[in-house]
Design a binder for these strands. Structure first.
Lengths: 221, 221
DNA sequence: ACATTAATTAACTATCTAGTTCGTAACATG
DNA sequence: CATGTTACGAACTAGATAGTTAATTAATGT
């Protein structure tokens, strides 16, 4: 968002223009939803014209899909850097849960895009070849941790990697995505530091407790 | 949605018209989001005119707020009927988690409305006096169960009722709200019966395990 | 039977919005 | 330095969309 003299003409720079459009488009879509975001508004925010959006992306929908692709790709990129393999199973899964928590905390716009995309029944993701086949490396990682934990006897519950991923994600996602209604209804700001730190510990303890099997009816202590 | 002869005039019935508007408005807002829903479309779907919507609700926004108020009120009403007080703490909290699961499963439109409202930072909920002060009886219930569980020694983890409510809700909410992106990316339909039953058990075991304290670092078995 | 009120219809308006057309200026390339 | 290509801007269009006006018809009470 390089500031420029008000009346000066925009310098020619295809890459920059494209990148800026994507950047503010992500913000606008995340803020106002797909239908709520305005093509004109996106253009105005970076001192270009709507024409450029159609020049580079073709349509509002294709722009939105491009935003999704960029956001998802970046997130997957970050996930690939997670390294907890050197830790013992219990610490590995706890750390992974807490890193996921931090990750959600740091990428609120992405969370909103996911929420919006779900309202549209993921129709745009399904239209994107890039995204349709984009799994997540975290699943393999969880799979390996679960195996190691079962082998070592630390984990008793037989769990599926996707389920565990879902359990961790749901907690982290909800805290960010639903903070506003939750705050309005219960008067608690889940994003405030005091609550955040406690909830961060909570997600780790939750997964570990679950995998240790203390919740199963067959194993009452 | 009483079907009527195509060209017949609509019978005069204020209550029915109002109720029908609310009904389809909920469906349309849940399906298309606030900005995406069309006032004309809502009117057409029940063979009335846009004018009636303004006659009864004043504006698109007030209609949306009325939808939220109705949906939230119904949900709270249902929550008040939950009775698990006669159960022992462990079974009580497990049952509550599973009932919450069922409840989310059965009220998908409500879940979507909540997701949509969060995208708008709960601005409409805050505008509603009805909703702004609407807590949830479940919080008291959880509080009592936690107390009983701590007293009996079944629960070791010191937990806050709001946190536990959030833990349960997040799991149940995510499975419904994010089923589309989750399905598109991981190829797993969390709404399918096979997965649903397993996840239902999982949420109960998760909370119980957490409260039994098997996850805390100070208490490794 | 008559007047009053409540519910409903039809047509209208002003504005907004995604998408287009066309012209033009900067840049690269021979 | 001529020529084609790439990036850009201004103005335009067609259709949609929230919200209104005003007339009309059905129910209600007297």
């Amino acid at each position: 968002m390089t500031s420029q003299p008000a009346s000066a003409e925009r310098q020619r720079d295809a890459d920059r223009t494209r990148a800026e459009i994507l950047e503010v488009a992500q913000r606008e879509f995340a803020r106002r939803g797909y239908a709520g975001a305005r093509v004109d508004e996106i253009a105005d925010l970076i001192r270009t014209t709507k024409r450029m959006i159609y020049y580079y992306f073709g349509s509002k929908e294709q722009l939105y899909i491009a935003v999704l692709e960029k956001a998802y790709t970046e997130v997957r990129e970050a996930e690939r850097l997670v390294d907890v393999e050197h830790l013992a199973p219990v610490e590995a899964i706890r750390t992974l849960a807490e890193l996921t928590f931090d990750h959600h905390d740091a990428h609120r716009e992405f969370i909103k895009l996911v929420a919006i995309e779900n309202i549209h029944r993921a129709e745009h993701i399904r239209k994107s070849e890039v995204l349709a086949n984009l799994g997540t490396p975290v699943l393999d990682l969880i799979g390996r941790i679960l195996q190691a934990g079962t082998a070592s006897g630390d984990f008793v519950t037989e769990a599926d990697a996707v389920d565990v991923h879902m359990m961790i994600s749901s907690f982290c996602f909800f805290r960010v995505a639903n903070q506003h209604t939750f705050g309005a209804l219960f008067g608690r700001d889940m994003a405030a530091r005091e609550h955040r730190d406690r909830l961060r510990r909570m997600v780790g303890e939750m997964v570990v407790a679950y995998l240790r099997g203390a919740g199963s009816p067959e194993d009452p202590r």
